[in-house]
Simulated scan of single mutants.
Amino acid sequence: MRPFDVQAVLFDLDGTLVDSAPDLGAAVDKMRCDRGLPSLPLTDYRPFAGAGARGMLGVAFGMTPDHAEFAAMREEFFRNYESRMTELTRPFAGVADMLQGLRVRGLPWGVVTNKQMRFAAPLTRAMALFKQASCVVGGDTTPHPKPHPAPLLEAARQLRVPAAACLYVGDDERDIVAGRAAGMRTVAATYGYLGGSVDTVVWGADARIDSPLQLLDLLNRGRVA
């Protein structure tokens, strides 16, 4: 294990800081109901919530991005989601205390998500949890979303912290790929949407946490490995 001087912590949004699956699922399930199809339970949608429109339309309609109607269906989903983004979305248990722990340590933190800023900006503005966030970088803030390192490098630039001194926490393999490509240490959040259904060990993260507060334990030890 190697000591690591953390100067800032960056987080994925959906599945890492907040559980948005209920609102994402409801937005696409409305599309099913509007077409006379039976409603699906949230348990069907939850594992795919991190994949956004692609994941939700895949569950609800078996639709892939190469489908001729995908673009139109995606925009309908976006409109539905936009109208209810914060109805059921809540921080995961322990997230508020974890972020308070970062503040006590004087560590700036920010968000790097593949959610378009059309959604990421109003969502984070509407939730008190994000008032202390030093940056919010969306999937369209830079020319390339994750797993490209560009969004993470942009966040480091906004925080004025070297990328090598940042820690990135996410619940998807692309988060770990992006973080490593940006030269950051990475932490896999196994409590997120994919943690229970895939082998997160193969992602190659520097550490894994089963709850948000475990991140503070890592920082207390002064090492991530």
Rank of each mutant, 00 (worst) to 15 (best):
32 R>V: 11
12 D>A: 08
20 S>I: 08
177 V>N: 01
99 L>A: 07
118 R>W: 11
131 K>Q: 15
221 R>P: 00
170 G>S: 07
206 D>A: 11
175 D>Q: 10
225 A>Y: 12
54 R>G: 01
207 A>V: 04
37 L>V: 11
191 Y>S: 03
166 C>Q: 02
195 G>K: 10
171 D>A: 04
150 A>T: 01
90 R>L: 11
101 G>S: 09
158 Q>D: 01
120 A>F: 08
180 R>G: 09
19 D>W: 06
133 A>C: 13
133 A>S: 15
224 V>P: 00
188 A>Y: 09
59 V>Q: 05
205 A>W: 05
7 Q>K: 15
79 R>D: 14
45 Y>M: 02
196 G>N: 09
146 K>C: 02
93 A>W: 10
200 T>K: 02
165 A>K: 07
154 E>C: 03
193 Y>N: 03
196 G>W: 12
190 T>Y: 07
173 E>K: 15
23 D>T: 09
135 C>A: 14
139 G>W: 08
145 P>Q: 12
122 P>F: 14
28 V>P: 00
57 L>E: 07
140 D>L: 06
3 P>E: 14
186 T>D: 06
207 A>P: 01
53 A>S: 15
134 S>Y: 08
199 D>W: 12
119 F>I: 10
77 F>D: 02
107 L>M: 05
124 T>V: 12
122 P>T: 13
168 Y>H: 13
154 E>F: 09
120 A>E: 03
196 G>S: 09
158 Q>V: 13
119 F>L: 13
140 D>Q: 10
223 R>F: 09
23 D>I: 10
108 P>R: 11
169 V>F: 02
84 R>V: 12
28 V>L: 04
4 F>P: 00
220 N>Y: 07
220 N>F: 08
159 L>D: 00
115 K>N: 06
74 R>G: 03
96 A>L: 07
49 A>T: 09
30 K>D: 14
180 R>I: 09
201 V>H: 15
8 A>W: 02
70 F>G: 01
219 L>P: 00
212 P>N: 06
71 A>R: 12
204 G>Y: 05
74 R>K: 15
137 V>N: 03
64 T>Y: 09
202 V>Y: 04
168 Y>G: 00
75 E>A: 14
138 G>Y: 10
225 A>R: 14
33 C>M: 14
19 D>G: 04
143 P>V: 13
200 T>F: 11
71 A>S: 12
161 V>S: 01
151 P>N: 05
130 F>P: 00
